[in-house]
Design a protein around this nucleic acid. Structure first.
Length: 738
DNA sequence: GAGTTTGAAACT
DNA sequence: CAGTTTCAAACTC
């Protein structure tokens, strides 16, 4: 396994390293083999040319002129991989699980899928191209998003209970690698034109993913998990590798299928058709996995118990659900989606509301055909498969778009598809759900919130008063806002406003709730108990609500109050400021859990645990994950690490920053790693405020500064944990304009 | 659905 | 930094 992985990595690296060479790769296989690079790779890898050849082929097809950034590539690849995985998995259904049958079964499946997908393909292609094109402009964004996802997936897998064990993890990982492999193969054909970078990226991803996969995969059964393509991924196992490579070639030949997958992926937004849905679902699944991972831990309860975590969503019933489930556990033979959540990763749910909503929404919406709920950020994670897909896509887009977008136009294009898909589409769905109410959240139960809807009248939706804006998402139809400027059309204005706000408070868009890693949690802190040991980044200032109502951000976020809180008479059921825990009745608990769950969505945690994250990405991917490990809170850090958040959630710091700031999540991660200091800075740094580091604390930051911060400050504790604040990229923005 | 309460965000 | 105002969500009726 490891060998293979190594080989792949090396190869991939080589590819990445040498852009020019890539082109060479693109050239016929024979050339590739001959190429110095190839030789070099071969020398490095224990594996023999045979595989490399395959790989190279894939690369060839995939490779493009554009040299993807390292980080990006991984992301991209991841995404695609996921897609592929899904698809394959999905295909699986058509086929029953794929066992080992590699080439043949694959082919068959591919053919079938191809037929199914065929009609979709056009759309997808268009979609992909569009997205790609947009990406090209905004590529960074896209990449970032990808990066995020991947890491999540990776990390999630291990963590999530859903995974059920190693097998799952292995599954996902494998799937990832496979995906990468498959994606590579597939992509080239379909997307070649548009996404050169993608190819390269994918390759990268594969490398890392493969590695991890290899490690973990060893334990897992490839057969179950993967489709033929997976086998192709094979790098893990030597035998598998050989076969895999073989498969790869076949796949390549079959390009159609793979392509279809890709396309299908692209078409997520549009996709709703059964066939497509399936494909999309698969894709969505993966992304979801990525996205949702965050949520995971808590959700368990909510969802099913078993899969719940994995699903993060409530959505079980739907396709989505299925998908989600799949992610967790291969529900159907076909669906093997290995989803995994990374514990730490979540997207972000910046906005609490979103989270809660999403969460519920997902359920409801799942029902809804559209499944749109979702605000870009966190919500996406939950949403239906379809929605999820969209979401995921959108999310990706969004993030990337945000940052990348900044440039605006760029983002848009991408976003358009994505955005539309996500934001708008979602919105539509939302609309269906609740056309207008002011209280989206109120639903408390409500749940519709997948997306957030605001009711702003005076803020023009350009202030943090606006939940949509605060969450980094555009307002959608369901919103009852007046004079809304938080629309794609006003992207520039939105971005400018964001920057202003961020300049004041770098963490403004960061997720409000930050979750510590479980392990660490600890304790010491005030309310260690709080669900997930998450804390509100700034703490609340409640005086009359006793921190028992949603007026309290801590409560709303499902987290306990912390030292940072200035609340009076704190009775937060999730954890009092003083550290005392409150015991709730079952009912209350249920409520709280729900809340927590919702909030959890928002919360993003990164676990240091190398395990979870580590496995993956770490290595290569710059992604946050890497960063994950990073931040230990330093007691110093003025503020508790905030989340940076997430694009899907909007506010996340890091992520978020990436999104808006155009910062790459990766960067942020890297920075974080470097700095380790605080999560916040990262985001901030990235984005907006260079000063950023600065102010982790809120502008006013009364609360922030406390060294200990929520998370644990105790020195000892900290060390173990690292929080990561992922920001949600807020504005997906940049999405399409209406 | 209207009105009130609440606390964050914004402003001074 | 503190105090005040503005704002919109959360909540109540």
């Amino acid at each position: 396994m490891g060998k293979d992985g190594v080989n792949l990595e090396k190869q991939s690296e080589g590819v990445v390293m040498d852009t020019p060479e890539r082109k060479q790769f693109t050239s016929p296989v024979s050339k590739i083999e001959d190429s110095p690079v190839f030789n070099y790779l071969n020398s490095l890898s224990p594996i023999k040319t045979f595989k490399s050849i395959h790989i190279t082929q894939t690369f060839n097809s995939l490779t493009f002129s554009s040299p993807p950034s390292v980080f990006t590539s991984p992301h991209v690849s991841s995404q695609r991989d996921s897609r592929f995985l899904r698809r394959h998995q999905f295909s699986d259904p058509s086929k029953p699980d794929i066992s080992c049958g590699h080439g043949e079964s694959d082919k068959v499946a591919s053919t079938e899928e191809a037929t199914d997908i065929a009609h979709n393909i056009e759309q997808q292609q268009n979609f992909d191209q569009g997205s790609l094109a947009g990406e090209s402009s905004a590529e960074p964004l896209y990449e970032t998003s990808l990066a995020v996802e991947l890491p999540q997936n990776l990390s999630c897998e291990c963590v999530s209970p859903d995974c059920g064990g190693t097998s799952n993890c292995g599954m996902e990982i494998e799937s990832v690698s496979e995906l990468a492999a498959s994606s590579m193969e597939v992509i080239p054909h379909a997307e070649i034109g548009s996404g050169k970078e993608l190819v390269g990226r994918e390759v990268h991803l594969e490398g890392p993913s493969n590695i991890d996969a290899n490690k973990e995969a060893a334990g897992c059964d490839w057969e179950n998990l993967f489709s033929d393509e997976v086998s192709a991924v094979g790098p893990d196992n030597n035998s598998s590798l050989l076969e895999g490579s073989h498969d790869m070639q076949e796949v390549v030949t079959d390009q159609d299928i793979p392509v279809s997958h890709n396309q299908s992926v692209a078409g997520d937004t549009s996709e709703k058709v059964g066939n497509e849905t399936a494909s999309t679902l698969q894709r969505g699944m993966r992304r979801r996995c990525l996205v949702f991972e965050m949520v995971g831990s808590r959700r368990k309860r909510l969802d099913d118990g078993s899969s719940s975590s994995s699903s993060s969503m409530p959505l079980q019933s739907h396709e989505n659900t299925a998908s989600s489930d799949k992610c967790v556990v291969p529900l159907k033979p076909g669906f093997n989606i290995p989803r995994r959540r990374l514990p730490g990763i979540g997207l972000h749910l910046n906005t609490l509301a979103a989270t809660s909503v999403d969460h519920k929404v997902a359920k409801h919406e799942a029902l809804v055909p559209g499944g749109q709920p979702i605000s870009v950020s966190g919500s996406a994670a939950y949403i239906n498969s379809s929605s999820i897909q969209q979401m995921s896509n959108s999310a990706l887009v969004v993030y990337s778009s945000d940052r990348d977008i900044c440039p605006v136009g760029d983002g848009t294009p991408i976003s358009e598809t994505a955005a539309q898909g996500i934001g708008y589409m979602v919105n539509d769905g939302l609309n269906h759900n609740s056309p207008k109410k002011k209280r989206r959240k109120s639903d408390s139960d409500g749940e519709n919130d997948a997306c957030k809807r605001c009711n702003c009248k005076k803020s023009k939706c350009l202030k943090l008063y606006c939940e949509c804006f605060a969450a980094g998402v555009y307002c959608v139809e369901p919103c009852s806002c007046q004079e809304c400027f938080n629309k794609p059309i006003y992207e520039d204005t939105v971005l400018a406003t964001r920057k202003q706000i961020e300049s004041r408070n770098p963490l403004a868009f960061a997720p409000k709730v930050i979750r510590k890693s479980d392990s660490i949690i600890e304790i010491g802190e005030e309310s260690s108990n709080t669900p997930a040991s998450a804390r509100h980044k700034r703490g609340c200032n409640c005086k009359k609500s006793g921190c028992l109502k949603k007026y309290c951000e801590c409560y709303q976020g499902g987290v306990g109050c912390s030292i940072n809180c200035r609340c009076e008479g704190c009775k937060n059921a999730f954890g009092r400021k003083d550290g005392t825990e409150v015991e709730l009745g079952e009912e209350e608990e249920a409520k709280h859990e729900n809340n927590a769950v919702n909030s959890s969505l928002q919360i993003i945690t990164i676990q240091n645990d190398a395990e979870q994250n580590s496995s993956f990405a770490i290595p290569a991917t710059p992604l946050q994950f890497g960063s994950q490990s990073i931040q230990p809170f330093s007691s110093k850090s003025k503020k508790p690490p905030r989340s940076s958040f997430l694009s899907i959630g909007g506010s996340s710091s890091a992520m978020y920053s990436t999104g808006f700031g155009k910062l790459n999540p990766l960067r942020s991660l890297s920075k974080i790693q470097n700095d380790q200091k605080d999560e916040m800075p990262e985001i901030l740094q990235n984005n907006a405020s260079p000063n950023s580091s600065v102010k982790l604390s809120s502008p006013k930051s009364k609360r922030v500064s406390p060294p200990h911060g929520n998370f644990g400050q105790s020195p000892g504790q900290r060390s173990s944990r690292r929080l990561i604040l992922q920001s949600i990229p807020s504005f997906p923005a940049l999405t399409p304009k209406h």
